[in-house]
Design a protein around this nucleic acid. Structure first.
Lengths: 183, 183
DNA sequence: TCGAACTTTCAGTAATTTCTGAAAATTATA
DNA sequence: TATAATTTTCAGAAATTACTGAAAGTTCGA
């Protein structure tokens, strides 16, 4: 398993990025490697291509499988497990989005809810609660949107993404023809 | 600077979350502390409230200032610098979004562009390039959207987020008012 | 039920990131 | 200009996170 220079640089870069997207360097590299390969790879292939230990590969694959980004596949007459990236690029984006929401938003939202139920003990806390309320409302809206995005068909998702610069326009139209109260 | 239990738990939690939102634990705590306080705090207040070193506070404030989330303010007759969280919660969300785009998307996009200009050396690379193209297109759309969101007024942003069953509605509106071809 | 082929686990180590605190730099005042 | 108040810097220490590799676990065929 030797990588061409192009693949190598893609894989390395995805490693760097991986750590910013919620998984660690080697997991990112492993995923990039699998995405770029049409045919499934064995754990040993991966360890060799990336120059990392067999144990590390095992842990990484476990994580990628738990994200449902990677699947085992068996080849007949071979006892080894083979792995491939699974799903479209959309599926990957959704998974990352969902996972990040779970880890970055949900816990905060639940803490904020609790805190907003408490009676403020003094002016200080009264002020703090107001700011907390704003954060809460924002995070709640974001959560609602990501939930909806999860449900959208790839087709609609595409339309939506391509709309981008149209957002402003659409909102203008809304105000003009439907009125502010209908939101 | 002693915090009430409520504030303390908010601040600590934001610290945990901070590390998931792109800054480290103490920077997250510092920001939470400043957001929750109506009146500006001195660097020493912060160090004391959070039980961290003065040097650490200095570095953290520098980072928060570079994100334009925090501002210095002087009190007359006092030589110390005082700090306050600045901007609405929207401004914060935008800053975080922008900063993350810069760090998580832009570099990848630029690498992918370069790689897509190369001639594939073999079938392997041809396949890889196809997948890379998909990733590229996705990231490019996301970038466009975040740019668009940055430009939206807080008012419109609010309308957009609050749209009940938002996504579907936006798409409906688009079809209705703009027509399918203009996307 | 044995053993070969393979995978997983996890204690210890390595790499990375964050934090401290003392020293250097800056700033304001007299 | 000297000095006192304050902030910044940064080398080293501490804390956290990731990785290795040997040992334990699993699976399957004979």
């Amino acid at each position: 398993m030797k990588l061409t220079p192009m693949l190598a640089s893609f894989v390395m870069h995805f490693g760097e990025m991986g750590s910013r997207w919620g998984f660690n360097r080697t997991v990112g590299q492993m995923y990039a490697l699998l995405v770029a390969h049409e045919h499934p790879l064995s754990a040993n292939d991966i360890a060799e291509a990336l120059n990392i230990s067999r144990g590390n590969v095992s842990m990484g694959l476990k994580e990628l499988q738990s994200w449902q980004l990677v699947q085992v596949q068996h080849q007949q007459g071979d006892r080894k497990d083979y792995f491939r990236a699974v799903g479209t690029i959309w599926d990957m984006a959704k998974k990352v989005m969902e996972e990040r929401r779970k880890r970055e938003i949900d816990p905060t939202l639940s803490l904020l809810r609790d805190m907003l139920l408490d009676q403020p003990a003094n002016d200080q806390e009264r002020y703090a609660q107001q700011r907390l309320q704003e954060i809460h409302d924002l995070l709640e809206s974001v959560t609602k949107w990501t939930n909806e995005l999860q449900r959208l068909s790839p087709d609609k998702l595409n339309t939506l993404l391509k709309l981008s610069s149209g957002v402003g326009k659409v909102l203008d139209m809304k105000d003009k023809f439907i009125g502010k109260d209908s939101a």
